[in-house]
Simulated assay, not measured.
Amino acid sequence: MKNIVLIGFMGVGKGSVAREIVKVSKMVALDTDDIIESMENRRIKKIFEEEGEEYFRALERKVARWLKKSVENTLISTGGGFYKVPNLKKVGTVVLLNAPFDVIYQRILEHPNAEKKLKKRPLFQDLERARALYEERFPLYLKAADIVIDVDGKEIPKIAKEILKKVKAK
């Protein structure tokens, strides 16, 4: 089985879905933000503060090249902007986890670790800016995706099964 690449807006559940797919399949999981933090030995937030977005996007492109060349049968969860890497479809089957902005935000607020989740996503401190970014990215996510999975109102195990079924059928 080739790689599955999860894309979608921050907070949509890519990490949670990735962990579930690993539980029910023979795949392993990688997170592009975790890889970047390991490469740089610093948090994403620090990279943005110290180097800026362009530097970070260059790191994402580097990670995408490495994934394409070196990784197979892996579930790859990505940062919210990873969909922009030029060779994305060569990394694996691209699956968009889709939910309306308000649903994503509400999910974060209802999470037992909500304060930590919000702190990790400073963009959500300015809701209008976050909403504008979501609306800007949504059509680009659709364009980048091979498969779209609506996650609103679905439990994580159901989402994981749906992804595996659709990727297998593709």
Score class of each variant (00 low, 15 high):
G92L: 00
K117T: 07
V148N: 03
V91S: 07
Y105S: 14
K46Y: 06
E40C: 03
I104T: 06
E20H: 04
A130L: 06
E40P: 04
V5R: 05
K170R: 10
K45G: 05
F138C: 05
V151F: 11
K45E: 06
S25T: 06
K84H: 08
E115V: 14
E128K: 14
P122N: 14
N3G: 02
L142Q: 14
D31F: 08
V167C: 00
E20F: 02
F101V: 12
E40W: 00
S70P: 00
E110V: 13
K69T: 13
R107K: 11
L88Q: 12
G79K: 13
K117C: 11
I47F: 03
L96W: 09
I159N: 05
I35L: 12
E115H: 08
E49W: 07
V95M: 04
G52K: 02
P86L: 03
N41E: 02
P112A: 10
T74M: 01
L127N: 13
R61W: 05
W66G: 05
E72S: 09
F56C: 06
I4T: 08
Y141Q: 15
F48S: 07
I21N: 05
F48C: 04
V85E: 12
E155R: 15
R137A: 09
D150G: 11
F9H: 15
Q106R: 04
I44E: 13
I47L: 02
A99I: 10
I36Q: 01
A64I: 13
K158H: 13
L123G: 13
V17A: 05
K154S: 04
L140I: 02
I21K: 05
I4C: 02
D102C: 08
I159Q: 04
A29I: 02
W66M: 12
V91H: 10
S38R: 08
I21T: 07
G81L: 10
H111W: 15
D152K: 12
R43H: 12
K120P: 10
V103P: 10
E37L: 01
D34V: 12
D31Y: 11
R137D: 14
R131G: 08
I7N: 09
Y83F: 15
D126T: 14
K168A: 02
N87H: 13
T32I: 08
G80S: 11
S16L: 02
S25A: 05
N87Y: 11
Y83V: 13
F82G: 03
F101S: 09
L127Y: 08
I149M: 01
V17R: 02
D150R: 03
S38T: 12
P122V: 15
A160D: 02
V85W: 11
K166E: 00
D34M: 07
Y141F: 08
V24K: 01
L133F: 01
L67T: 13
Y55M: 00
K117I: 08
L75A: 04
I108N: 08
K45D: 09
Y141E: 15
A58E: 15
K23W: 10
N73Q: 05
E162Q: 09
N98V: 00
E135S: 09
I7T: 11
V148Q: 09
T93V: 03
K45H: 04
L140V: 04
